[in-house]
């Protein structure tokens, strides 16, 4: 009886160490709930570069070929304030194709830390999914 209980407890501990803890979604977004789905999109990349007080924001959204039919990209230039990120400027454009590159610039920036936030609606017919992704940060 003792041996059986010992084996059961040992198996329980081993199983607990091998659980793939992928249930949690990393919450990087502070202003709304994260809903991430990748049914129509393959990958998303946001980038930012700042030079001479001008920020260049880029969002590249790659949809599944033969599946994605349209992408609506809303791009936010955000500035860090404490632990929050505030929108400085936003742009939106619709691309009637499977993948898209969206680049925008904002000049006369005040000093601070900035990032690009990409919110992409990737459509397949009338259905769509919303993908959100942040870039690394850049300092002005």
């Amino acid at each position: 009886m003792k041996r059986i209980l010992s084996v059961l407890i040992a198996m329980t501990v081993i199983l607990s160490c091998s659980i793939n803890a992928s249930a949690l979604i990393k919450d990087e977004f502070v202003d709304e709930e994260v809903v991430l789905r990748y049914q129509y999109a393959t990958n998303v990349l946001s980038s930012i570069s700042i030079s001479s007080k001008t920020a260049t924001c880029k969002s590249t959204v790659v949809g599944q070929s033969g599946v994605a039919t349209k992408i609506v990209i809303t791009q936010y230039l955000q500035k860090k304030s404490g632990s929050d990120w505030n929108n400085v400027q936003s742009w939106t454009k619709t691309f009637n194709q499977a993948s898209a590159i969206y680049t925008n610039k904002k000049s006369s920036l005040s000093s601070g830390t900035y990032r690009t936030r990409t919110v992409a609606k990737v459509y397949s017919g009338n259905n769509y999914e919303t993908i959100k992704q942040n870039s690394s940060t850049a300092t002005c």
Binding site: Y38, Q39, T42, N43, I48, S49, S135, S136
Partner: peptide, 17 residues
Amino acid sequence: QQVVKEKFNESIDNENS
């Protein structure tokens, strides 16, 4: 996509890939 190393931060699908 060609990206400066320290700027590379890509989200890729692992549900349907």
